[in-house]
Write a protein that binds this DNA or RNA. Sequence first.
DNA 1: CTGAAAGCGCTAACAC
DNA 2: GTGTTAGCGCTTTCAG
Lengths: 329, 329
Amino acid sequence: MKRITIYDVAKEADVSLATVSRVINGSEVVREDTRLKVQEAVEKLGYKPNAIAQGLALQKTTTIALIVPEASFFYTGQIINGFIDVAKIYKYNIVLHTTTEGITEMGDIIETIIKSHVDGVVIFNDKLNKEELNILTRYQVPIVVIGNRMSDETVGSVYVDYAKLIYDFASDYLDRGINSIALVEDRKNMAMIRQLRDGLEKAFADHGKQFEHYIAIPKEYRSSYLYLQEYMKTNRHQLMITYRDSQAMAVLNTAKEMGIAVPEELEIACILDSKYLAMARPQITGFKIPDYDLGAVAMRLLTKMLHDDDVVEKECELSYIYTPRKSTK
Amino acid sequence: MKRITIYDVAKEADVSLATVSRVINGSEVVREDTRLKVQEAVEKLGYKPNAIAQGLALQKTTTIALIVPEASFFYTGQIINGFIDVAKIYKYNIVLHTTTEGITEMGDIIETIIKSHVDGVVIFNDKLNKEELNILTRYQVPIVVIGNRMSDETVGSVYVDYAKLIYDFASDYLDRGINSIALVEDRKNMAMIRQLRDGLEKAFADHGKQFEHYIAIPKEYRSSYLYLQEYMKTNRHQLMITYRDSQAMAVLNTAKEMGIAVPEELEIACILDSKYLAMARPQITGFKIPDYDLGAVAMRLLTKMLHDDDVVEKECELSYIYTPRKSTK
DNA sequence: CTGAAAGCGCTAACAC
DNA sequence: GTGTTAGCGCTTTCAG
């Protein structure tokens, strides 16, 4: 069965292919009865316009590329969900790219994106260097970055100010004289951690102190849990802040094993909130990061950049919600 | 800056566009010096072949569509990861579609998929009726289904036999005279639950008994946790099996609150294993479902169907790994 | 209101 | 070896 084309429809309806094209694109200037004739033919033949050919002719694909890191798919998943939901509204298809450490370099992805002539790209990735964005820009692909604040002519961004988040949080503790605060790193997300560290250091500096307890989990440890067990044998803090839920749970479990009372002796807070935090006992304090919204707003911003020529607000800061639970006093 | 085409390169290198085409496609029959001349021009101009135009000319897009449910993105995320990893190997792009309850009907997705002329589609979705697959088949799009066993000329499938999984698991308990077994449903994944129920019923039947404790969580409950608390006040079982990790944790937490000893008085097992199961205390028994592999094998199967004309094994059953932990005796 | 024809960028016979 | 040319399926002036 040969795939049927606009030409077949034209013949069937006894009109020119130009007319068929007008009908399927909802052009106003077609007489009612010819429209019906065409629609019947379309129906009868089961014709579906070839998006590839349309893309070629129109010089636009109505698809946009989304780049995310392979890791931490739970958080990423929400971003994708938000993203796709609004992409749908605007009828955009989305092609998904993931950057796998060592396997798929960003460069290759950029390359295929350029070749595929997507209308725009949204990038949620830490290992993001300006260089690569510039290549995209050179090929005039509109870009929205998730997670990093940045913008210029063709790039917009949607982000949460993690530095401010942790600055405010820690300052409150420092105000109350609680100084032994530790931050558990996450190698998977260095840029994010960078921000957290900056915020924390600033909070300490503003209190005339210096931040010292940055817990970097050595590469050789398979899970942060194993290392934290080790670490907590010889180190005690009043507040431990982790990036991921799994790290917070590791700290909590270790504390339990060691008979450290949470939150009385040790308080725990996690940056990235998740439902699992609420399932732990005691429930762990977290910050609701608007992951879904990051995706949704990014896509929304992109459509704006695609359609409105006038200047729009290219930097969107989204806010988090502090969600105190039982692991903090 | 006008997007530069094969024609520009041809002019720059002073050859015909056919030659340029040969070079970029690695045709052997080009003389070395012309090849170099062309490559220089490509480099100088920053030329990237237009995949859309190639798609039109070649009648193939090297992209495949992946349909997943929006919900439960953790498990889904792994499938996507596996899927993408092997798609990369074969240089396929992937366009992602999600079926949102009430918002995006499968029908619409099928429609856009047909229009976009992807080379194949992989579907991981419960609400999957044969009807819709047939439409795809009619337009000769090769399909691989994840999760349901089925196949014919143009469709293959990759799945785990949940019925067998739970049959074996429950039988072992029944053999030992443990009959009070309950299954917690999950409304999000009815087809899966159907299988579990079938397996359980069969196990009971084969032991001359009847399975009775199917715990359906009423729609009005926001979280299964709230309902399970309620339920467990008046119902006691020896073994409770849940589908998701969150449900297992809800059962565990409730048991703790009520002073029910796990696993002494109540055993808990979860079908879909996750790292969170290992973080609970006691750690919860689960079955490692090869989610990543489901995605990877599906994509692998699809490429086979795309390239090899000869018959291949169209049904792949993947096996789970029983992972006993502290919540079972 | 409708048709003819010129592309969109690239590939693939078919010549030379 | 390399160039010419006819599509791939659709959109869009430009005539009529």
